[in-house]
Design a binder for these strands. Structure first.
Lengths: 119, 119, 119, 119
DNA sequence: GTGGTCTAGACCACA
DNA sequence: GTGGTCTAGACCACA
């Protein structure tokens, strides 16, 4: 499956779809000028209504990330990777702060990072 | 102000209130048997409707975190701190993974942690 | 009735709603900080689905024209009137050009303007 | 290029094609009994699918504007120029009204007309 | 097949 | 009452 949606998350589904697509572009899973899945194909695959995917794609187009091609689908334009990285760091910092508030030790966070990145 | 609500967050306000109170208990800002602000007072302070705070308190009571005292408000019972820490670590791990996907370097994450915790 | 939608126009309904609201703001029919009709009220009045109005409002909010107020509706922020006027003139110019192509005489256009504006 | 299609317009492409051809006939760029470009040729020239041009021609034929000639293409029959002019004036009047609503001054419209028609 | 818009109706958070 | 999101399904233009 192309990606997974968390239907119990407070983050709206259309927003999750937007994020996932941006991530895929950032990771070069999707390259410039490449077609992304059709609205209906993606909707079916992730078990979501067509309108929800359509909204995500429409907003991504407004943001200049993808572009619709008449009668044939959507292609990738590109993303501002620097901004994505900056945003992710900001998000990371917030959770580090709340971890600190919970008195989770620094070394425990380091350990988790090592687990994820490999040592 | 006792704490801050992000009205633009997708996390519902009542949920944010619950989280903030749990955090305060975890941080020992609020201790067992201590009174928490009345529904009315808190609603006024953070600028939300009474019903919203009432819902947060009602759910916290159901979870055994606080308890209403006849005619005089709510007192802290306690929280499962281990669970809160485990949840936070889980949350942390997810964001580390997505940082890795964005090719953010390990040392950059370490640096942010050092900034937050002090070196 | 607050305004009229042309269901036979190629201009999508949500777009017509956006335009009408902007016009009303430009005409001072709607003033800053004033509430606009609720999504459901307007939808009912103009005989359109709630989602269609919701989309129009959402986009107007993104454009900074209106702003949603939690639990109570949308208020007017304001519009870039200069831009609206410039756009309208551009639109006007185009139709003048096509009138010219049809060999409609200049004085006939003047006559129509006089009719509309009063002489 | 014979004429230009605006792919971002809400006016459907087939409709734009119909309008452009009618305009050309009204302007005498295309005269009665003259051949118009073949479906294939026009489709290639303006960069649209054959079906789209075919639909435009089919409708123009139904309206009696053009006529297919067995095995050799389509020829111009003629148009109701009076109706085209009346429609254009109606369209013009509407935009004058909305210009008035925006408080655009009469003399500014006159100025634009003078620019387009030459003084 | 592709995208685009719309309806009718549901369920939720918030005031 | 207010906004916000989502589904199921329809109909259209375009390739």
């Amino acid at each position: 499956m192309w990606f997974h949606i968390d239907f119990h998350s407070y983050t709206p589904v259309y927003k999750q779809i937007k994020n996932k697509i941006k991530e895929k572009i950032a990771k070069k899973d999707l390259k410039e000028n490449e077609y992304i899945p059709s609205i209906r194909a993606l909707a079916k695959e992730i078990g979501v209504n067509l309108n929800t995917v359509a909204r995500a794609y429409r907003e991504l187009e407004q943001e200049g990330v993808i572009q619709s091609v008449r009668g044939s689908g959507y292609i990738v334009i590109g993303i501002d990777k620097e901004k994505m990285i900056a945003d992710k760091k900001e998000e990371f910092k917030k959770i580090v702060l709340s971890a600190k508030n919970l008195k989770i030790e620094k070394k425990e966070l380091f350990k988790i990072i090592d687990e994820v990145y490999g040592n």
